[in-house]
């Protein structure tokens, strides 16, 4: 493949187009990519596929710590595990610059609406890696009066990484899986959150309730969590 590998004396008389291109007037522009393109400077692909490949190859993660799992998440970003090796290691402080949110920890009632807001602030397309048992079901705190039983109650999740907390290797595997799926153009079904639909659905609809319901500002009713019926 590479022209540099070949000894100078065994240079064939006929040059391929590819080799000719690599010996331009200014070889500063040579690159592995240019080499790989072969005889043509053009590539032919579907734009969608190209974009998916781009998205999967360079993911900006949201710097988003909640609980214990965020310590392991930091370890995943940091030395030794170094998530950046896989093209997914730039923690962004602002949700507006992030593609992926890793949800690392227990979500409680007070935090759930805030997390929803952070998620809403991320630009499309956005992906969610839910990290740890707490984001799957509430984990060891599932019985708690204040604990939301899984991230999926609040935002849709693409990948679940189980563990309490998952090892950095597990998180890397989860992120790599997500990259693979994104590159292949697969997406997760979006789950419908109970709090979005339910608006005092368990009350009997009489006049008084209707009247009171008119006063409710839908915008502010961000989260009404029904503890009894949740899984």
């Amino acid at each position: 493949m590479s022209s540099q590998d070949r000894p100078a004396d065994s240079k064939p008389a006929v040059q391929s187009t590819q080799e000719a291109r690599m010996e331009g007037t200014d070889d500063r522009f040579n690159s592995k990519l240019r080499e790989a393109f072969g005889s043509s400077p053009f590539i032919l692909t579907k734009f969608d596929q190209f974009m998916n490949w781009v998205r999967g190859s360079s993911m900006f993660m949201l710097q988003f710590g909640i609980a214990c799992c965020s310590i392991e998440m930091m370890a995943t970003y940091a030395i030794k595990h170094d998530l950046d090796r896989f093209g997914a290691g730039i923690p962004r402080a602002s949700p507006r610059q992030a593609d992926v949110i890793i949800v690392p920890g227990t979500i409680v009632s007070k935090f759930a609406p805030r997390m929803k807001r952070v998620y809403d602030q991320m630009p499309e397309p956005k992906f969610v890696v839910s990290m740890g048992s707490c984001t799957i079901s509430g984990g060891p705190f599932q019985q708690g009066y204040n604990v939301v039983k899984g991230a999926e109650e609040v935002i849709p999740c693409d990948i679940h990484v189980p563990g309490c907390p998952p090892r950095p290797e597990a998180l890397i595997y989860g992120v790599a899986k997500l990259q693979e799926r994104v590159a292949n153009g697969e997406s997760s079904p979006v789950t419908v959150k109970p709090y979005e639909l339910e608006q005092f659905g368990d009350l009997e609809q009489d006049e008084l309730v209707d009247h009171l319901a008119e006063d409710i500002d839908r915008e502010t009713l961000v989260m009404r969590y029904n503890w009894a019926d949740s899984p």
């Binding site: 009632s109 007070k110 759930a112 609406p113 807001r117 009066y145 368990d202 502010t220 009713l221 961000v222 989260m223 009404r224 969590y225 029904n226 503890w227 009894a228």
Partner: peptide
């Protein structure tokens, strides 16, 4: 006497 199953409303406001 706390009933853990009662729904709670948590809003942004």
């Amino acid at each position: 006497d706390y009933d853990q199953d009662q729904p709670q409303v948590v809003s942004f406001e």
